[in-house]
Design a protein around this nucleic acid. Structure first.
Lengths: 219, 219
DNA sequence: ACTAAAATTTAGACAAGTCTAAAAATATAT
DNA sequence: ATATATTTTTAGACTTGTCTAAATTTTAGT
């Protein structure tokens, strides 16, 4: 039985491991959880003792199958609650993260399975991230960052790789929301900023920084 | 900012104070929270330091206005979540307590206000208990225990004063659910057990112990 | 390869919430 | 009214999760 704190560590290690195959370093985890490296080391030992992670002194850690399952369960909870908050309670996609961070730790399998059914077993959360199923199976989201797209391709916004309120609120403002049709009109070679056509008519300039964090699929 | 533990103490003191006007004793709180009296004393000092309770050594404690407001907020959360679990997720009224005990501690005013609207601002939870409003105002439930009712009166089940899963599951079994029409046909003088007529036709025997914990209003 | 920088771990400490055992205060019974 | 029982508090200790400061290990630069 993992505590809330331990669940947060597992989730954090999972997220880092998605990006870096070698696993999660002490520093990266400390940054992700806004805590100190020394604190992380203490916790890594406890998680290793429960066989939730593979830990060798001074090396990046990875999740064991047991740890991965626990992490995916938290991710499932988090994303289902986000769907609930947006679809049912009419929150905007940039307002739901903090509350979902709390709700994800509610312990009841029955609750989450019923919530899943109530929501119509959604496959993606409001940010386009895939929702793991009961068994911990998760769709591999093959969307690519907008900054890697070629000029002229017809694209659809399918997700984001940055979840901060500010970023999402900005996307709302400029109408770059999930499902939006986008064509890259021009890329400025100097700073890789982009000129987009949205909804076949509106023109929008975005920075490289923004383009990098928008995920798209071909239309 | 109260911790989950402190919130549970406040709720417990509130519930005891509903029954005993003089307030909550250390022992009563310890029993309610399934902890030890020594632990309770420690916490009472902390709550008093935050001006959430009135505490004098060796005396029963009462909530200050600030403490009462905090307690009613938790009660509001708990009861709204119970309505959600029963109305939306189709849980039975005897399955919701434990999960609601967790959900009640989620910290977000916006969340609970939106949930309230989503549920249609219900006035009572699935056990017939009144739901405090945003401001902490709570309807005084004037339902009376079934065992105090006279023979022949036409009654409606309006609540329960015992919330254990076993008791509620039993009521389900014998069809004594919220809103059920009941007439007291006979009271056995020896043990105060009761013979009821349910739904104008079915006959049911219940013990005094059961009757005491069912709340009714006149039809 | 050797040194400086960066990352990680250890050691010792603290806060919150809990416990047991013992002491002190209050309540009860005859 | 006084002894006994009950309730409450105190004292000291433990666990979880956190911190700072110092030590150690790994990595990187030249």
């Amino acid at each position: 039985m993992s505590s809330q704190t331990q669940e947060n560590y597992l989730k954090c290690i999972y997220k880092i491991s998605e990006k870096y195959a070698e696993g999660a370093s002490t520093n990266a985890i400390a940054e992700g959880l806004e805590t100190k490296p020394a604190t992380v080391t203490d916790m890594l030992k406890k998680l290793a003792a429960q066989k939730l992670i593979n830990y060798q002194k001074y090396q990046a850690v990875t999740l064991t199958p047991k740890g991965r399952k626990a992490a995916l369960n938290i991710v499932r909870n988090h994303r289902l609650w986000e769907v609930f908050l947006v679809d049912k309670l009419k929150f905007s996609w940039n307002e739901v993260h903090d509350v979902a961070e709390q709700l994800e730790h509610i312990k009841s399998e029955e609750l989450i399975n019923r919530l899943d059914v109530f929501l119509g077993t959604p496959k993606f959360d409001p940010h386009g991230d895939p929702i793991p199923n009961k068994a911990g199976k998760i769709i591999n989201n093959k969307a690519t960052p907008l900054n890697e797209s070629k000029v002229g391709l017809k694209l659809i916004v399918a997700g984001v790789s940055e979840h901060s309120t500010d970023f999402l609120a900005y996307l709302n403002e400029v109408n770059l929301t999930l499902g939006q049709k986008v064509v890259v009109k021009k890329v400025v070679a100097f700073d890789q900023s982009m000129q987009l056509i949205i909804n076949k008519k509106d023109i929008l300039f975005i920075s490289h920084q923004v383009a990098k964090n928008i995920l798209v699929v071909c239309q």
